[in-house]
Write a protein that binds this DNA or RNA. Structure first.
Lengths: 354, 354
DNA sequence: ATGAAAGCGCTAACAC
DNA sequence: GTGTTAGCGCTTTCAT
């Protein structure tokens, strides 16, 4: 097992001092040096295949070149797309990313915040599970760690999110314009910010139309939860449309309707939320709201990187536009309502993924 | 911005020397100490909320507590499940994971190998894109970095993979037992090991049955590629079954058949491979082979952790069993063939996810 | 324009 | 049992 090549090896080989090598590596130190010297050093570096050791740099500089990405579940395509967006920017900017999976657990989330602290990250792109541990957040900040909330903004944090309220509002109006009236809503966990916003958008649109929801239920953002709750709702209430808190829930609802022999969209309209790429392959195509989640990742990281080394500030959330995606899980047009708001933002911040 | 709390602060507060604090933190150093002292130190740590700085430890110990996970695309649910499996073990074992996304690019992969080297990782769970950069791999090994190939084994590396050959063989036999005879295969990239294995399984089964494939085509593991190639194949050949290299490709094929007005499974049987959770929601349900990918992640990491600090050895790949998942994308039973191999392994290593 | 020297926070000999 | 000491590999004054 070889000995690690150090800056001294390079120095020796180039016939200079370690500090000179360091200066070649960190041009920001802006001193002028004889081109011949620099050249000799560069050559030695190449010959020895020298790579500076991150932990030593970090130790000396007190933090450097690493950013944490903390999210609830990397195996969820929604979050992994977000992570990928964030990572792409970080990589461009020369940062390493430490992706951490809190597994929807606030406790694990806190453990990871500690870990990120110990790793001396420069900043964190943070998708919180419910209400985060503010004490830890504060401690991180005191250490100068910048934090940007992604997808689920928090009052005291810089953040980037989608316009969930607007998306949900439009979606509801869309349903109404199609003639649906007896609408039930199967929401996600109440403590999650996006759940709240979507619910508000729905309720506001209903109120505007002078209607009341048939019923609102809460569950997890999973297929099973959607299936379960939809079955109950369909058994106990007379509804003509079911709105899911996200696409998975809506899909669960779709299968529930199917197994009850209810025709979609004939007897029942169904809507989702998120419009994750894979799900667009489902049949019948889900009426949903596309969230530019890859872009949320990129934008959060961009904001974070710009923010690092700058004075800390709370700042307003950046809100990214969403897009209504009509599908065949609702009837196509019927009984158009007079008060349709068609000011749907057609996002310039689109996908961008590859 | 607060000053970092160091081991000396703790020492001072507890009225002991830094080394004593260090000994409390690293019990493996196994010296006995007066319980009272240990208690005072622990209390000081608690009061000061002290966390040892990773980079300092790493520097001193020459590497520690960090493992890289390098894969082709974190936004692909297949790989993100693998990552999650790997991470879950690492977390249990007290390692941080550095998840890196090579974006299907060998060049980016090499860059990340360098980065992982600079980060002084203890080991790497590695899902290679095609043929890896052996020179870099060798350099990493020379530094004592252990590497385990996951999902796509490599000759000179320890590895964990699924029994792709067997899965593909069974799948083909399944098709044959259903009476399908004119079978075309739409494979993934030839340089990927799993592609090769699946192809071999298919070809061997066909040969055994005394049949020739109608045609074999290669493309990417994407929906679009599947759609494109399936359209071409269906236009130019008379086939009664289409096998996709993975589920996404099969899905593309399904949509291609649909848009050509071909009935599935009436006129055409379709099969996939992987059986990623989300896709099971598709309709008609894809006949596929379930790969325990979460388990591949866990197993690779387990192997890696056990391997760290041990002498390096090549070793045979660990092969995990797969499971045939019959679906409605093929006709149900017909013209049963006499030579069906029904020795399908029903995996004890199942999902395990939450 | 370059070198010498002093640590960053921690651990591991080696003393006592 | 516990303290003292000497660095790990790097950056950064401060000299020259």
């Amino acid at each position: 097992m070889d000995k690690k090549t150090t800056i001294r090896d390079v120095a020796q080989r180039a016939g200079v001092s370690p500090s000179t090598v360091s200066r070649v590596l960190n041009p920001h130190a802006a001193v002028h040096m004889r081109p011949a010297t620099r050249e000799r050093v560069l050559e030695a570096i190449r010959e020895l295949r020298y790579t500076p050791t991150k932990s030593a740099q970090r130790m000396r500089r007190q933090r450097g070149d690493i950013i944490g990405v903390l999210l609830p579940d990397i195996s969820n395509p929604y979050f992994s797309l977000l992570a990928r967006g964030a990572e792409s920017i970080a990589f461009e900017e020369g940062y390493s990313t430490l992706i951490c999976d809190s597994n929807h657990s606030v406790e694990r989330e806190s453990r990871y915040l500690d870990l990120l602290m110990a790793e001396q990250v420069d900043g964190i792109v943070f998708v919180p599970v419910g209400t985060p541990d503010w004490q830890r957040i504060q401690r991180l900040r005191d250490q100068g760690v910048r934090i940007v909330a992604a997808d689920r903004c928090q009052d005291r944090l810089l953040g980037v999110e989608a316009d969930n309220w607007h998306g949900s509002h439009c979606l509801t109006q869309h349903l109404l314009s199609l003639g649906y009236r007896q609408i039930a809503y199967i929401a996600g966990p109440l403590e999650v910010r996006t759940t709240q916003e979507r619910l508000r958008g729905f309720q506001d649109a209903m109120r505007n139309a002078g209607l009341d929801p048939i019923v609102i239920r809460h569950g997890a953002y999973t297929f099973d939860s959607g299936y379960q709750l939809a079955s109950e709702v369909l058994a106990g209430h007379s509804v003509d449309a079911l709105m899911g808190g996200d696409d998975l829930v809506a899909l669960g609802a779709m299968r529930a309707a199917e197994s009850l022999g209810i025709d979609v969209p004939g007897q029942l309209g169904i809507t989702g939320f998120d419009s994750v790429p894979l799900l667009s392959l489902i049949h019948p195509a889900l009426t949903s709201v596309r969230i530019p989640v890859y872009e949320i990742g990129r934008e959060s990281m961009t904001l974070l990187v710009r923010h690092i080394g700058t004075t800390d500030s709370p700042g307003d959330p950046t809100v990214l536009p969403v897009e209504l995606v009509p599908g065949s899980s609702c009837r196509q047009c019927k009984e158009p309502s007079p008060r349709l708001d068609s000011s749907l933002t057609s996002s310039p911040h689109d996908r961008g993924g590859d």
